[in-house]
């Protein structure tokens, strides 16, 4: 389940395409708008290749500051028709703050913050068997 298919690097971030239409993003450092745009283009292109909707599993443990414009781009990704769920997680307080800023900008129900990867993944997969 959720076997890795391929892996990419954009900036300091790692993107792993996993089974079950999941893009696993491990963030590292700040998220300026230019990087966010690049990521958006990459993610939506990958999602376009998938059969069905795509979910994002975003590890914010080492995430840096997200510009307001970058947060808007997260909102666009979450809002895209190809997107199923966006599950963010991070144990440290910084990750929680960032996630709340991003989720606060978006305000949609398909983006949530979890304490760890396990819970996040479980939410993504929730209802898949039904």
């Amino acid at each position: 389940m959720n076997r890795e298919i391929s892996q990419y690097h954009i900036g300091n971030n790692t993107y792993t395409i996993r089974e079950g239409n999941i893009i696993h993003i491990v963030t590292h450092g700040d998220f300026p708008v230019e990087l966010a745009l690049e990521i958006k283009n990459f993610c939506l292109a990958q999602a376009g290749k998938m059969d069905g909707k795509c979910s994002y599993l975003v590890d914010l443990t080492n995430c840096g500051k997200n510009d307001p414009a970058a947060r808007e781009i997260w909102k666009e990704i979450s809002n895209d028709a190809s997107t199923n769920k966006v599950a963010t997680f991070g144990m440290n307080p910084v990750a929680r703050v960032i996630a709340n800023f991003v989720i606060g900008t978006y305000g949609g129900v398909n983006m949530r913050l979890f304490r760890n990867e396990k819970d996040a993944l479980a939410w993504i997969l929730e209802g898949e068997d039904q």
Partner: peptide
């Protein structure tokens, strides 16, 4: 400044930085 500790003070700092960005915007 935000350190690489990512502790509560860094969270506070990060929050303030992002709020400043919002205010600026």
């Amino acid at each position: 400044p935000v350190t690489d500790k990512y502790d509560h003070i860094d969270a506070l700092a990060m929050g303030i930085n992002m709020m400043i960005d919002d205010l600026k915007l």
